[in-house]
Design a protein around this nucleic acid. Sequence first.
DNA 1: AATGAATGAGGTTTCATTCAT
DNA 2: TATGAATGAAACCTCATTCAT
Lengths: 222, 222, 222, 222
Amino acid sequence: MRKKLTEEKQLEILEAGIAAFAEGGFHAASMAEIARRAGISVGVLYKYYANKEDFFRACLRHSLAALERVLGEVTAREEKLLTYAARLLKELRDFSREHPSHIRLYHQITNAGGAAARRLAEEVEGAAARLYTEVIAKAQAAGEVRRDMDPRLLAFFFDNLLMMLQFSCSCGYYRSRLALYWGGAAEEEQVAEELLKFLESAFTLERNQIDHRPKAGGRGNV
Amino acid sequence: MRKKLTEEKQLEILEAGIAAFAEGGFHAASMAEIARRAGISVGVLYKYYANKEDFFRACLRHSLAALERVLGEVTAREEKLLTYAARLLKELRDFSREHPSHIRLYHQITNAGGAAARRLAEEVEGAAARLYTEVIAKAQAAGEVRRDMDPRLLAFFFDNLLMMLQFSCSCGYYRSRLALYWGGAAEEEQVAEELLKFLESAFTLERNQIDHRPKAGGRGNV
Amino acid sequence: MRKKLTEEKQLEILEAGIAAFAEGGFHAASMAEIARRAGISVGVLYKYYANKEDFFRACLRHSLAALERVLGEVTAREEKLLTYAARLLKELRDFSREHPSHIRLYHQITNAGGAAARRLAEEVEGAAARLYTEVIAKAQAAGEVRRDMDPRLLAFFFDNLLMMLQFSCSCGYYRSRLALYWGGAAEEEQVAEELLKFLESAFTLERNQIDHRPKAGGRGNV
Amino acid sequence: MRKKLTEEKQLEILEAGIAAFAEGGFHAASMAEIARRAGISVGVLYKYYANKEDFFRACLRHSLAALERVLGEVTAREEKLLTYAARLLKELRDFSREHPSHIRLYHQITNAGGAAARRLAEEVEGAAARLYTEVIAKAQAAGEVRRDMDPRLLAFFFDNLLMMLQFSCSCGYYRSRLALYWGGAAEEEQVAEELLKFLESAFTLERNQIDHRPKAGGRGNV
DNA sequence: AATGAATGAGGTTTCATTCAT
DNA sequence: TATGAATGAAACCTCATTCAT
């Protein structure tokens, strides 16, 4: 009989699916088009996946698994908060560049609503949320991070900035938007670098420490 | 586009479209369903709009115009950066609550890619990007904002946090995500309050000012 | 708007469906083909019926309703058993000729098995079974019909012969089969006539009355 | 058709096909499912049979051959009509019980129309039709059977009752129907027994012999 | 002018058939 | 040779769009 699809081909199919679903969501993608892009016949899709929905979920799982693998590698090491943040930024940037469709698919699912959204959010973000919060709480205890803010919100804002950075690397609209702010030839390395500085300050300075006298060369405060 | 339907009815149609498109994107929405929701016949839809795409663009325009109106009102007054940010947060939060579909539709279109995305980004974000950057640059000049970061990136990170806050108020997934971080009964007022503190620090403290000695009660710095 | 399908057109659609399903059963018929035969588009089929199964059931209902109407008319009058049987034969023969597809569809569903078959049998045959049995029991009480057989089985054999007669008038195979027995130019009138004679004897003669002496011109008995 | 599979396996394949086709007709059965049931691969099916139609015909031939073998055995002996009928009933009942799928497949094909139906009817029923007619004609000549009816029609009605009895033993719908008439625990032996009585009378009593005076305990005749 | 039924292209899914292994 | 995965035509079904009323 004909050889079963190689592992490689199976991945290619998933990638084709991810790319298609990332484009315009579940409804916009066509199974026939996906098959064509993956260089197979529709029949194969339906031999491996019960239906479009099932295939979509497989793509999602595959995509999120890859993302989680990246996060897992970064979080395996014990480190100072900002060192950790720096590595996270780098890894996510690399991942976003290599697999923009994965990030775009992830962005797609954030459209979802209802119970499915809740389940998905817990599945995808739960671990990260807890990890970030914990790391930040520890850093607060160690006096490395400001104590006048709830660690959960610090973690939340931190993750928000990470998400937007990923989107800015991967999704057409957000890329254009970054270009609008930063100029056409966006060097993402520098953006990441600057984001670290931004975070460093945000994590450090307590409100009551803010000096309200104008700085040299300027008058007045924020 | 003739002029027979009342202004009010026209708005109702657009709102129905926005709600439908916000749900699952362009392809998931059905013209018949939209007409039904708006209490009109499909025929009317096609009298006023050439086709689905055309109607979608009208919904988008309407939705973004509303958003821009809000931004416009906020930015009309000359103010200090953080006062301005505070007002912006409040207005966007209110808008997100009253018109979550608008925000969700906005989120939908950020999936787009290609030239359309570029055009859209410029149209939607261009003014804000320039405004934020300018305000921040002025604040830097006045010594109210750190000078060791590019005002464009400061503006960019600022806007990123704003966008995520809007999504967190409006879109199912992001709402669940906020709940994950912050607990079930997320009081968005407090989140906005804390975001201001976060921004204040991020905008203020320069990296070389960061005290690397551990704070009281903790040892070491970030 | 376009005019809704006339009652007449709706019947035409059902007839097209009945003809198609009668041909080779549920699976052999194609919705597109049915639409084409009925002179409509597939869309109409799916506006009136949720899906193929639903449409099939509607065809069945329509077909059986027509059959039941015929039976109902016949059974409305109080009559002697054989007069009644004669009229039944005539009406069924006429119906079979005018609507052979209905009979053929009926024949199709007798393929069914399982609980659906039981339900269908009760629905279609229940009334007739009870009626025939009752009429025969009464005739037995009146001494008009042999008493050495269970009225239920007499009714059953009676109905069996009726069913086969219908099939022999409507379904290709059974028609050919009748031709095999009776010769090419099967005159169904005469068959029905003879069936009556057959039934008359079967209903009348009790076993113990059978004369075992050879009849004139023959030797030996059955 | 090559000759590599064991005789036994070939029969198993045919039986699987017969069971599948009997279920819902030609179109409802799937080649893959048949292969699975027979414990072979589809490839084998297509090595032995050119296509689905060809395989269907082979199943039919096999099924009818079995039926004809039974009839052949019964008709080999010279006997009195009713003894013969009794044996026929018994054999067909046994066959229906052991191979209900064969009967159900036979029932399936009686849907067919056109020239194929004619050919099939001749092939399947021709011999029986001629045999029955001949036996009955002889019995008439011997004075054992009424002479006021055409032997061909007597044979036809006789065969009709036989067919229905077979269906009533094998096909879901007809079984339910019998239960409707005769009660849940249909004992087919008794039905066959009673059918013989029914036939005996039908074959014997001539119309002009029918006594039109009411029988004891009743008034009037049929 | 508004309606919404009808249209039919196009999407999803199945399955008879092929053919590389 | 037997296998059963791959193929793709054809079936079911949906919905953007048209247009008779």
